[in-house]
């Protein structure tokens, strides 16, 4: 566990300090916020995919549930933003519990079923018949709680907690058990690992992280539509960033987000018309030459990546 603390201090603390100070030198705070949000999402995805091998293509479902959990708490309960953040986490956790049976599936079947579940939640939220509750397809406005500086700070806190969780998983008994399940669930079960319980815990932790990310996103952006909160690109980006950097590490998803999301914004501002082409070529090269992500450059040479 001491190693986990050391890794956290080496990797997470400098990153958190940099992100905390960045608004003082760079005024596009929303861009910095997006970096934080994708760091949270990538680490949340890391918790389920990196440690158990389950790839949730519909990960955005938890994100959207969190965003709407926050919005509903503000709109109908007049909740304070922090209480609404708790509601965001609860909403995503509740969805995670409902979707727990999906863990009976594996591989592509799990990915597709998860994606379908996220779409189902989206359709329910955007149903015009629920306009009085969710505002249906017409979007929500949360201008009464709009506080970009405070929500930026809260996002940073969530990221700190998420990185701590991943650092803990990397070194704790549960994390090792999850990795054993990922490699061979039957052997892990034979060795006394509680497979179902382990997977369920990882699944719910992952859902909670995405829900909190969704909640703070709703708070920060304050006006959004269902298609914004359930945009599939959140899932795709989180998956690509995690795979690019290297799953099951703390550092890998961080590298993935910083490099790829940074590149995304550079391309998006300079030559947006070539964005898909450049991104696609980059991913093809990654698959061909670095299928285990950037972290594998070090692990192949015997170095431990935090």
């Amino acid at each position: 566990m001491r190693r986990g603390v050391g890794e956290y201090a080496a990797v997470a603390l400098p990153l958190l300090a940099a992100l905390a100070l960045a608004p003082l030198v760079y005024s596009n705070e929303l861009l910095l916020f997006n970096f934080i949000m994708f760091l949270i999402l990538a680490q949340g995805l890391n918790a389920i995919y990196g440690f158990t091998g389950y790839l949730p293509f519909g990960y955005v479902g938890f994100f959207g549930a969190g965003a709407y959990g926050f919005a509903l708490a503000v709109m109908h309960l007049d909740a304070s933003p922090l209480l609404a953040m708790a509601c965001a986490g609860v909403a995503a956790l509740a969805l995670g519990v409902v979707l727990t049976p999906l863990l009976r599936l594996s591989g592509a079947y799990f990915a597709i079923a998860n994606l379908a579940a996220a779409q189902a939640v989206y359709q329910v939220i955007s149903n015009p018949a629920l306009q009085d509750i969710t505002k249906g397809p017409y979007g929500v406005t949360l201008s009464s709680v709009f506080a970009p500086a405070l929500s930026y700070g809260v996002a940073l806190g969530i990221l700190a907690a998420t990185l701590a969780l991943v650092a803990w998983l990397r070194n704790a008994r549960l994390g090792l058990a999850l990795q054993a399940i990922r490699e061979d669930p039957v052997s892990a079960a034979m060795a006394g690992v509680a497979v179902v319980r382990g997977r369920t815990i990882a699944w719910l932790l992952s859902a909670l992280i995405a829900g909190l990310a969704g909640g703070v996103f709703a708070w920060h952006i304050s006006v959004f539509y269902p298609e914004t909160a359930f945009d599939l690109s959140f899932s795709i980006f989180a998956i690509v960033f995690t795979l690019f950097g290297g799953a099951a590490t703390q550092l890998g998803p961080i590298l993935g987000v910083l490099l790829l999301y940074g590149l995304y914004n550079v391309i998006g501002i300079t030559v947006p018309q070539y964005f898909q082409l450049i991104y696609g070529v980059l991913i093809v090269l990654l698959v061909l030459f670095l299928p285990d992500g950037l972290a594998s450059l070090a692990t192949r040479r015997g170095f431990r990546v935090p």
Binding site: L55, A111, I236, I239, V287
Partner: peptide
């Protein structure tokens, strides 16, 4: 690899 190829 298959998943990443599909994404690409």
């Amino acid at each position: 690899r298959i998943v990443v190829c599909l994404l690409a």
